[in-house]
Design a protein around this nucleic acid. Structure first.
Length: 296
DNA sequence: CGCCAGGCTTCTA
DNA sequence: TAGAAGCATGGC
């Protein structure tokens, strides 16, 4: 963990001193489905607030900065989060920084990973990836939708839920809360073309609402117990549980195994996950996943 | 038409 | 208890 450095100016939070970061690599690597390209960056909800996120493209004109390719930055780069409908507070600045994973020392982490030659290659392919720390409920629902599905359609179905049940902020819909999804029936999901996932979604929402699945409890459990706990939900197996734990619960040893990772592991790491990734297998997984999808 | 998409449940031997 | 079939939908 490292300190989050930020400065608040009007409705913007300016983050500095966080190591490499690349917005497209981070927001389009398949971990988040609710962020869209907007102007020079990305727009989406963080901590229920509509945010416009940009990386300073002039960073390379500052001292001690590398050339930027859409925002792989050196020391003096600035990551700006503009709050489009609220005013920033210190509390929000810290929470948004945590969402963006600015409190994780990626420089140190990648240096450790890169001692493994193959892992170094995967990192070099997309060095600006970060594992975000997303909303628990939203991650649970979106990854139930993700099963046996493709990314454009996952996005489309998630957006459909927002448009029908979420709160409209400006011209954008937030992802619905459990309460906002309380009255959706299995038939409603089928009518919205969720297919066989309909009963899984109904079960997940019901279990969150009645407390059988409790966010605080999940986050207090060790990885193995947390995975079992989440798998009480119909339609949540090891892969979806691992995604929820990695992308919303900071269980960085959680290693979601999908078709791409299985292919990549067989080819790149026949002996298994390298020891250099120990404790942070899930973060290493993101570099491997991205590398595999684009090169294998 | 068949195959596949960041899988899971259920059936079968 | 491993392995295969079935599941909804849409893009190619």
């Amino acid at each position: 963990m490292q300190k989050i450095h930020y400065d608040i100016q009007d409705n913007k939070i300016l983050y500095t001193d966080f190591g490499d970061y690349h917005l497209a690599q981070t927001f389009e690597c398949g971990q988040a489905f609710r962020f869209d390209r907007y102007k020079d960056g990305y727009k989406g909800f963080i901590e229920k607030q509509l945010c416009y996120i940009t990386l300073d493209r002039d960073a390379d004109s500052l001292p001690n900065c590398q050339k930027t390719d859409e925002g792989i930055c050196g020391k003096n780069a600035v990551l700006t989060v503009e709050l489009l409908h609220t005013q920033p507070t210190d509390e929000l600045a810290v929470k948004i920084g945590q969402f963006l994973s600015l409190d994780v020392d990626y420089t140190a982490l990648k240096n450790r990973f890169a001692k493994n030659e193959t892992l170094a290659r995967a990192i070099a392919f997309a060095p600006g990836i970060r594992v975000l720390n997303q909303d628990f409920f939203e991650t649970l629902i979106t990854f139930i939708i993700s099963q046996n599905n493709n990314i454009p359609r996952i996005k489309q179905l998630c957006d459909r839920l927002g448009e029908r049940y979420g709160t409209k902020v400006g011209d954008t819909f937030a992802f619905p809360t459990p309460q906002q999804m309380a009255d959706i029936t299995e038939q409603d999901y089928r009518d919205m073309k969720f297919g066989f996932r309909a009963k899984y979604l109904a079960d997940a929402v019901a279990k969150v609402l009645n407390g059988e699945i409790d966010e605080t409890t999940v986050k207090s459990l060790c990885y193995e117990d947390a995975q079992k706990y989440l798998m009480q939900i119909k339609g949540v197996g090891p892969k979806v549980a691992d995604c929820v734990l990695l992308f919303s619960c900071r269980q960085y040893r959680s290693f979601p195994k999908d078709v791409w990772i299985k292919k990549a592991m067989a080819q790149l790491f026949p002996a298994g996950i390298p020891t250099e990734a120990e404790g942070y297998e899930g973060i290493a997984q993101q570099y491997i996943f991205h590398y595999a999808r684009h090169t294998l």
